[in-house]
Amino acid sequence: MTDYTAVQVVPTAEHINLDRKVPAHGGFNGRLLRIELLRVLRNKRTLIFTVLLPLVFYVAFGVPQSSKWRGTDFDPKAYEMISFALYGALAASCAIGAGVAVERAQGWSRQLRLTPLSGPSYIAVKVITAMITAALPVIIVFVIGASTGASMSTGAWPVSLLLTWIGGSLFASLGLFVGYLVPSENAMQILGPGISLLAFAGGIFYPLAVMSDTMRTVASFTPMWGLSQIARYPMLGGSFDPMWLVSGVVWIGLFFAGAVWRFRRDTSRV
């Protein structure tokens, strides 16, 4: 071999080990998850949009509601609490979804492919991160709601919390889709106003209960309508409209399909 006489080489007796093992769980581990969560908690913009904003909205628009809305017999505070908590959860999961696409555009996914981390394990890390991030605003808004007099039946509290959390988390698919469409940090600048608009149209920022019939019909065709109705169902009671579920499944399905479509288009070139 080459004789590098010009350079002082420190002889290292220990030969490179060739007998290696594949990591358990496809490389999934706590250190990775911890760093992923840390990234979210350090991102001020994400925290403002996903935690602070829903909280401020609830305090500003939900807490002052003292009398019931015309023609309804539920607590408007509880209605607003669930709505804004759902908004926070879906904004959070959207941000994580868009982050996946941004990471891909920046070559991080490719870098990870040079490690033992498996695809399913990467997805698992992201899903868990999205769910934990989405849980944050839900828990905070619900706690503030409970302490400011939002009321519903005892049984409805845990169920609506769960449905708000899960419903919001499903919107990671929207983030992923938009992220693949606009693979840069601009994705969140489109998503921010975009989801606010959808929240208005779908009856989250502007209660369906006080909408005109026309507006309510329009609302029922927008992405957040079905899942928000499901989240409020334990509180509202009455009959369960299967169209809520249909709306949720169709929209979330469309977002996932869109993300997969863009992803495939993207990889076919590589």
Partner: peptide
């Protein structure tokens, strides 16, 4: 790669800025 026998240094990208 799964066994950690191979590593690569790419020219650009592949880092998380935050």
């Amino acid at each position: 790669i799964g066994r950690g026998l191979v590593a690569a240094v790419m020219q650009s990208g592949g880092l998380l800025k935050d």
